[in-house]
Design a protein around this nucleic acid. Sequence first.
DNA 1: AGCGACATGTAAGCGGTTACATGATTCT
DNA 2: AGAATCATGTAACCGCTTACATGTCGCT
Lengths: 196, 196
Amino acid sequence: MPLEHAILSVLNQQPMSGYDLKKEIDQHIGHFWSTTQSHIYKSLRQLEEDGLVSVEEIQQANRPNRKVYSVTGTGRQELEEWLKTPMECDPVREAWLMQVYFAHPLDNEQIATLFEERIQKMKAQLDRYRRNTPRPADIDLLQMENERARELWQMTVDYGTAYLQFQIAWHERALQKIKALPVSHDDRGPNGNQAL
Amino acid sequence: MPLEHAILSVLNQQPMSGYDLKKEIDQHIGHFWSTTQSHIYKSLRQLEEDGLVSVEEIQQANRPNRKVYSVTGTGRQELEEWLKTPMECDPVREAWLMQVYFAHPLDNEQIATLFEERIQKMKAQLDRYRRNTPRPADIDLLQMENERARELWQMTVDYGTAYLQFQIAWHERALQKIKALPVSHDDRGPNGNQAL
DNA sequence: AGCGACATGTAAGCGGTTACATGATTCT
DNA sequence: AGAATCATGTAACCGCTTACATGTCGCT
């Protein structure tokens, strides 16, 4: 469903093929929503079935034909309604917290290492994020129609850094707590973890 | 996969049935990992197929038989390896950011409303979260073997509040930016949104 | 009489990913 | 010669959810 709305939104700005959609989506919202070719083609088929988009096949010499999709009237209605309906706030759901909760058979250093490695990974991720998302100077290259669009886009970029910084900060605070944890009474020295 | 490891971890503390697992999981990690009966039964079957757990069917008079699952040797090995391997940091992925990015055809007040409604929802969510997760006083009721386990559990609870607070704070900052956004040049007064 | 706890599951669907298939053209 | 770009998809799987099916017991 999320992808279908993204597709609808992009097509509303400009009709295009599945192939183009992939590039457009990667470029504009890829920093918070990755996707795949096959999923796009699948969603496109669904959208067509539901009458939200229409296709025009364009003959091409020397390369595969293109299927150019446009939003229909119904599609535009659906899009408008989606845009105006605030999204649900998903409940907290973090698989890695399982590891924290179930870590009690490990000794403090082992748990600390787990956190340190995650912190390293997240810092690397933040670095990559900053390198890969275009900065204000490059924005003109992604030709955005207006100032408004550019600022909204910038907000989505900022969310990513803010989120990663939050994660890193939380993990660093958590790491301090781990180090101050009472020593496991399961701990029998270097050969611990008898609970496993 | 995440659920399977949670099951393995719980069973490692104490063999039990699928029915009991559901309650145990809800109680202990439900604040960051919701699940369903059917998913548990399915995972249990998978774990058995993979030889990570074994079953013992217990005859009961006057009520359905129970199938009590225990972790096997292989299961314990798998569990240990999982516990010591730091989890991946998933890339940012937030469907609601789509709405932010694609909101440019709406006028400022409409976007602001979207944010305000989300903020309200998240505050309600935070309230519920605080009410529903047991506080330190109640912890003894969930009999946790030791101080260590209790503190790790507390960390997972704290993550939830920290996360929701972060979200709310980000949205509030974003709301201010929205209000300062240049007026849409699509804006034709009260009957705006000609781009839709 | 009706509901919730006890206890097991199946079937279908959802949104998504991974791997694979095809085949011409252009760039290095 | 080999890789990237253009352009379409299919099939199988993943983790998970929703809805449904079955049946007893004890409480109100």
